[in-house]
Structure formats: structure tokens, C-alpha cells
Amino acid sequence: MWKLLQIELFKIFKRPRTYISFVAVAALVSIIQFGLKVDGKMYVDFMLRDLSASFNIEGNVLNGYLVCYIILQLLLVHVPLLITLIAADLISGEANMGTLRLLLTKPVSRTEVILAKFLAAAIYTFLLLIFMAILALFVSMAIFGTDDMLNLKSGYVVQLKSNDIFWRYICAFCFAALAMLTVASLGFFLSLFAENSIGPIVATMSVIVVFTILSTLDIPIFNAIKPYLFTTHMIGWKGFFDVKVNNDNEAIIGSVQNLDKVLQAAGILALHIFGLLLASVLVFRKKDILS
């Protein structure tokens, strides 16, 4: 199993395709950082428009923490596409190349093969997120400094103390990892059914795009199905950036407003991952390899 995992990782990281994602993330993050560095004041003024009407806001509003939040908000919707590129290719790509049949005539069980491949996809996903965390969080902290973070939500503003943020990002990245892993498992599952990688990649992306649009649309008829779409839960990481207040409306440091909702979303995603992985194993064990 360990050998198989090593081999899968070796294969993933020997392919140029793997690095597209890293380059894309680096490019997107630096573009956003550059834009905010140059024109961030306008962005902040716009976001603070309503608040500035009644309040004077002083301090480094556009600090590394807020920049990271903006980046994650923009990027985490698109990273699934990059994850898909690898995950949906894992089985179908080998079927297409013809290496799948060679791999499966080796004295390793299919369950081992599929788990090793899934783990490799998971590791790839985590590495991409860690890479993103370094760029989006640490580099932003270096460029923009740190301060309290104003989370400007649609209905209200949350002020997070600068020493109450970092752990939230760790949680957010873990949550994002879960969300991305859900995408990876979907791509992985679909890749079982094709003998070229284009099909499952496009299928996975389509599912994500359609689901995301349904999740985003604020139309009553779609609201009813939102809870059943995994994309709705994928943005649950934002929940870590809202705090509870006490009776005096003071923010309670270290609290999370809807922790149960966030955990529920995480649970739903975990169930998706487990379900898709189990289905993958069951399908793959019985599958006749005709490629």
C-alpha cells in the first residue's frame, strides 16, 4: 500500500499537468495581491461605504488577514477545477494510456490500488492548499501586515481581533481541504467510468459549475434543493470568520457563530467523500478492465 502510494505520488509529480495548478494558484494569488496593493484603498472604501456613513474607521483595514479572506473567497470557487484536472484523470487517464491493465496484473489488490490513488489525490489536494495558504496567508501577511480583520458580511460587520484570527484560518484551510477532497472524490468516482480523461474532467466540472450556480442563485425554487448540493456546503469555511456575541453585543473572542452549522456542513462533505470513495471501491473491484 505504501509502495503503491509512493508510486502514485511519483506519477502525479512527474507530470507537467500537475504543476499547472500550482502555477495557476500562484498567478491568481499574486494578481489579486498586486491589484489590492495598487488599488486596495478603492476596494476598501467601496466595501466600507455604508459603514463609513456612521463611523470613522481607523487602522490597517486592508491587512494580510483580510487580503487572504478576499483571495480565498475568490479562489476557492475555482480551485475545484484544478483539483478535477488531476483527480478525474487518475483512473481514466491510465485506462486511456493502457497502463491500468498492466498495473492491475500486478500482485496488488484493486482496493489497494484505488485507495492509494485516492490518497495520492488527497495529498495533491492538500499540497495545493498548503501552497495556497503560504501564498495567500503568509505572503499577504508579509506584504499587507496584520491587524484586526473586518469581515464585511452582507448584513453585518464582524471585527476579529488580530490574535483571534490565525486559528480560524487553520480551521478554514482544513475545511477547504474537506471541500476540495469532496470534489476530488467526485472526479475520482467519475473517472472510473471512462477510458479517456476528458469525459470525467468535463463531467466533474459541469457538476460543480451547475451546482455552484444553483447554490448561488437566490431564487426560492432553488433554495429548497440547496441543502442537498455539496457545493452549498463547500463555502462553510466562511463560518469560522463569524463570532458569537454576548447579551451586551460584545463579540466573544474565540467563538464561532454557527459552529454547529459549520460542523454539519463538514459532516455532509465527509459523508460525500466516504460515499463516493466506497462507491469507487465497490465499482472498481467488480469492473472488467477492457481498455
Partner: peptide, 27 residues
């Protein structure tokens, strides 16, 4: 004690998908 103006950002700007995310305290 002072009066405040209304606060509202479009959900499209804040990229919030959830519908039932109103603050506990009435705006």
C-alpha cells in the same frame, strides 16, 4: 448613544450563498 444609518452589502459582493444568515440582533 447615537443613531446609525443602515448597513447592507449585496450578497453578490460579499459572495455569500446562504439565505438564512441574518444577524441575531435586529438591524
Amino acid at each position: 448613544a447615537f443613531n446609525t444609518k443602515e448597513y447592507k452589502l449585496p450578497k453578490g459582493v460579499t459572495l455569500e450563498f446562504d439565505t438564512d444568515d441574518t444577524p441575531k440582533h435586529s438591524v
